[in-house]
């Protein structure tokens, strides 16, 4: 029985150049047996959604530390849905204040991971929440 590997797009939207987290996560997900595509820096929501569709990913992991999450993350969700990627999870990691977490989740973000999160928890979250796809 061959199980399809979980495919994840790790994305850096906006002007923020802090990519330590994105790169550590990308490597940890790869080490956990997932297929990971990293977008590189300074991607617009449009570029991220197009890459997600082209790579047929199960999840998009958005790394953002600049404070622009309220503008950029809902836009990424919206563009994925417009492209018919209804099952694609959007998870966010970065410096996100508590009140924004609630709002982002209402807008379709599946989970927000704050500094100090173990990469194992992110792996576990993806394994548990991806895979209902046919």
């Amino acid at each position: 029985m061959s199980e399809r590997k979980i495919r994840v797009l790790v994305a850096k939207p906006g002007l923020d150049g802090h990519d330590r987290g994105a790169k550590v996560i990308a490597r940890a997900l790869r080490d956990a047996g997932m297929e990971v595509i990293y977008t590189g820096l300074r991607q617009t929501p449009e570029m991220i959604a197009a890459a997600a569709l082209q790579e047929d990913v199960d999840a998009v992991g958005v790394s953002i530390l600049s404070g622009a999450h309220n503008t950029l993350c809902p836009r990424i969700v919206e563009l994925l849905r417009e492209r018919g990627m209804d099952d694609c999870l959007v998870i966010v990691g970065g410096i996100i204040p508590q009140e924004d977490i609630r709002r982002l989740k209402e807008q379709g973000v599946s989970e927000v991971f704050l500094p100090g999160t173990s990469t194992e928890n992110i792996v576990k979250f993806l394994r548990e929440n991806v895979g209902q796809r046919t």
């Binding site: 906006g14 002007l15 923020d16 600049s66 404070g67 622009a68 503008t71 950029l72």
Partner: peptide, 22 residues
């Protein structure tokens, strides 16, 4: 802020969501 650090004015489309943030 990031637009200033990257050499963009506040009215650049690339500055959206970032003006005055960090």
């Amino acid at each position: 802020d990031l637009p200033t650090l990257m050499g963009y004015d506040a009215d650049s489309p690339l500055s959206e969501g970032e003006v005055g943030k960090c």
